[in-house]
Design a protein around this nucleic acid. Structure first.
Lengths: 349, 349
DNA sequence: CTGAAAGCGCTAACAG
DNA sequence: CTGTTAGCGCTTTCAG
């Protein structure tokens, strides 16, 4: 005879190795058909109150955890969405991911994270690997991919959002901002304040083409102006702030004629400002400094950093919402969204 | 009569929304048995060169992407590992995740990200939800969970690594550092430098118990010393740097007697230093400032920030390696690893 | 509202 | 080295 455990002792019967408890076990305990358990779990309203509660009890008692693989295989549906970004060392991606994550989990979806390290080959592999999980949609950073990647994604025939940058052609949906435009606006601003010899400072620009687009935008705008010129500095990767710190020293020595520096991101720019502080270099007197992103710290340094504020979290939210809209059959308000940007003119220029 | 859909072939695309190409299709094209394709893909050496290349061709031609659900269901094995952290707004977690990610992908594993927002209930739900994916192991931040969570995890009988903090009892494996110890060391340092009235400044300390452990450690050490005392400041959440900035102003007004401030993290401490700079408050003259984490920026501000350096990425790497060791049947060098910490005494104290 | 049958796409066993 | 036979645990038909 089996001893009926008191309800206070909810220690499970056998050694549950992992998904040892199956739907069938629950069904047996509740004396219903497996399918009824399935329904009670996925669509409670379709099961009578009586059975539902009997099933709930059995579930709790056994500590049943549905096997998602089986469910997904049978229904060809998952609630896991791959999110592919170049790297996690850049705050920007983090904040976008955060936004995505918030929206996704609020709707019961999970986030499968992939990073490419700015390598398009790796991106392609990642995409097809993640597609193997039969996701209901895909979120990916950037508009530029290998042709192969585009093909795979298009053929997959599922909702895809490309994030971070805004552009004319996208695979399916697009949320971002125009980096070229950002560069132009900063150039405009710097020109207006009287700067003429401007350096653009970035890292791994071959990979980080969005930063390069900002340079291109700046370059274009400067070309339109007489007697303005620019100079491009491309450093190898490394800690952004330290890099900005180093760059300021180097550039001031090698190119003393420059009167302004537009950094690829706020972290570098802040590094430069901290260096200037330490060395007593006047900003913007000796040289002006500008950044990109609008990180909170940008307004805390002295002098406060002129930068371009990008709505990163909003981007993540919007992108996720658009994807979810498409997933649930509807169509998003728009297929392409330019989240815009805002130039914050502060003391450093 | 109901309209019968034109039965073209059974490989048609009623809803070929994703990889409608299956293993069987590849097998048919290559004129081999499905299992051979499976082997060619998962264990190439077990298939003759001839068939292997014929299969490869078929795979490419069809653009076959293996259905991971099916594979996972059949083999009861996945290569997706859940990583559960409180939040993404804290750099610390990001860097640990980065370390984990690097090691995991290097071994062909993928990372399923979950965030709890410091909510243990949510953590419990997350754990059981993610367990539904039958992962080969689990990585989770922290040593404190709901009893329920511990039970689930233990019953799951799979490798588990608890990260971030080092402590006596863990579910399975543990990689981290002693936050209590960190607090003691900082107290030691501050006392040695002659500070006696020390404030600890944190946010959401009820949730962030690791920060509170640092406070406890500091408190303990100060108790041992005559005429030393401390004060605890707990602010509601928000941007760390801004918070440190605000806190410095507030505290200087409300508690002018304090001679040192130990912030819960470097970001807050940096915010305070930037504020001091802006307002011309002498550091450490008027008040000393210390942080925790050892972010790169800590050595860039003026005065350079005294802090405790934690090996975050190393933690991620180590944790992932230990997990993988267990997953592949072996056992890690140690079940519990204290990654240690290093106090960097700099100008701010 | 509930149930019985029939797979989803792949891989573990065993054969040959 | 290659193939055959059974399922993995769940959900989809389609009946009652």
């Amino acid at each position: 005879m089996d001893k009926a455990p008191p309800e206070t002792t909810n220690t499970d019967s056998r050694r549950a190795s992992h998904g040892s408890v199956t739907l069938a076990d629950v069904a047996a305990l509740a004396r219903v058909a497996p399918i009824t358990v399935s329904r009670a779990l996925n669509n409670p309203d379709s099961v009578s109150e009586t059975l539902r509660s009997r099933i709930r009890t059995a579930v709790d008692q056994l500590g049943y955890v549905p096997n998602r693989m089986a469910g997904a295989l049978a229904s060809a549906k998952t609630k896991v969405i791959p999110v592919i970004v170049p790297s996690l060392s850049n705050v920007v991606f983090i904040e976008v991911i955060e936004g995505v994550q918030e929206t996704l989990t609020a709707h019961g979806y999970q986030l499968l994270l992939g990073t490419t390290d700015y390598n398009l080959e790796r991106e392609a592999e990642l995409v097809s690997a993640l597609l193997g999980w039969a996701p209901p949609g895909v979120m990916i950073a950037g508009l530029r991919h290998l042709p192969r990647t585009n093909t795979i994604l298009k053929n997959a025939g599922l909702p895809v959002v490309e994030m971070m940058e805004y552009g004319a052609r996208c695979i399916d949906m697009n949320v971002g901002l125009s980096h070229f435009r950002a560069g132009m606006e900063m150039a405009e601003h710097l020109l207006a304040r009287g700067y003429r010899k401007i350096g653009f400072v970035g890292t791994r620009l071959r990979d980080d083409y969005r930063a390069r687009q900002r340079y291109d935008g700046m370059h274009r705008r400067l070309l339109e102006s007489k007697n303005a010129c620019d100079m491009l500095f491309d450093y190898p990767g490394g800690g952004s702030q330290q890099l900005g710190w180093n760059a300021l020293g180097d550039i001031l020595k090698t190119n003393p004629e420059l009167d302004a520096l537009f950094f690829a991101n706020d972290e570098m720019a802040v590094g430069a400002i901290l260096r200037a502080q330490r060395d007593g270099i006047a900003i913007p007197g000796r040289i002006a400094i500008a950044g990109f992103n609008g990180l909170p710290v940008s307004s805390l340094v002295t002098p406060a950093l002129t930068t371009i504020i990008s709505p990163r979290k909003l981007m993540g939210h919007t992108a996720a919402e658009m994807l979810l809209a498409r997933i649930s059959g509807g169509s998003p308000a728009a297929r392409r969204v330019n989240v815009g940007l805002e130039l914050a003119a502060r003391e450093s220029t």
